[in-house]
């Protein structure tokens, strides 16, 4: 118990150090550039306390829960030797973590507004909702596929750069044909799909898989899953914009 507390305390000092730059930037701009007093000081201080505690607990839970389960499952799948189930797992992990992602829901709603303004769809709530949902499932599907392709790449040991550069070429070609309104959103959607819980799990999955396959270097083969997951949404969202 005391050991956990001591660990938590040290982690908390780390969190404070991590958050210090933001505090400095805010204080500098508020007092020196904009020259305005802080509104609701009490709530802000409480908020800062929550952020520090929250980051501390999250990192603690990460090392105790998310990393170990991700790696132990990767090893268990490798030992089981069933490609089908590994791929099913990879797909569900990508799809399931993305479809409920709040950042994605926000971006999809925003994209529906853009589409309605650009007269790509009718300007009714039903049409917007339908567009936003379609976009959300498209992105989730693309992330699921990305993780599947990424896992197959790890199994085969193919170099990651061929996929990523190939993907970029595709993005560039599609940019020329996609409607102008969708391009910014498509580029952004690559960044928003990878959430705080997905990243550690997917990273642990990749590293766990490579360390249970002989002859793989975890640095070269273990990373790269997240890169796949942030590339495919761009392609799929542009395709969605072109089709609808």
């Amino acid at each position: 118990m005391t050991q956990t507390l001591k660990k938590l305390f040290i982690a908390m000092l780390g969190s404070m150090r991590d958050l210090l730059p933001i505090v400095l930037v805010i204080v500098f701009f508020q007092f020196f550039v904009l020259q305005q007093p802080l509104p609701n000081v009490g709530q802000i201080l409480l908020g800062v306390l929550f952020v520090v505690l929250g980051l501390t607990f999250f990192i603690h839970g990460l090392e105790q829960g998310l990393f170990p389960i991700g790696e132990s499952m990767a090893t268990a799948f490798a030992r089981k030797g069933s490609l089908f189930w590994l791929i099913a797992f990879a797909f569900s992990l990508g799809f399931g973590t993305t479809v409920a992602e709040p950042a994605l829901i926000a971006v999809a709603a925003e994209a529906a507004n853009v589409a309605a303004t650009g007269a790509m769809i009718e300007a009714t709530d039903a049409a917007r909702q339908q567009y936003a949902n379609g976009l959300r499932y498209t992105v989730a599907l693309s992330v699921g596929l990305a993780i599947v392709v990424g896992v197959i790449r790890i199994l085969k040991g193919w170099p990651v750069q061929w996929f990523i550069i190939g993907g970029y070429v595709l993005v560039v070609i599609m940019t020329m044909f996609a409607p102008k309104e969708i391009i910014g959103i498509a580029y952004d959607s690559g960044g928003v799909t990878t959430s705080t819980i997905t990243v550690p799990l997917v990273t642990a999955l990749g590293v766990g898989l490579t360390s249970s396959i002989r002859g793989r270097n975890p640095m070269i083969d273990g990373f790269g899953l997240i890169a796949f997951a942030s590339l495919t949404p761009m392609i799929f969202v542009m395709a969605y914009g072109m089709i609808i």
């Binding site: 952020v51 929250g54 999250f58």
Partner: peptide, 28 residues
């Protein structure tokens, strides 16, 4: 231990998001 880790992640992430919503986001 893993379940406890998930609980830590849950509590930590909630506090973190709430704190951001209260101090950083409005100010930023």
């Amino acid at each position: 231990e893993i379940l406890a880790g998930f609980a830590w992640v849950l509590v930590g992430l909630s506090l973190f998001l709430l704190g951001l919503e209260w101090c950083l986001f409005p100010l930023g």
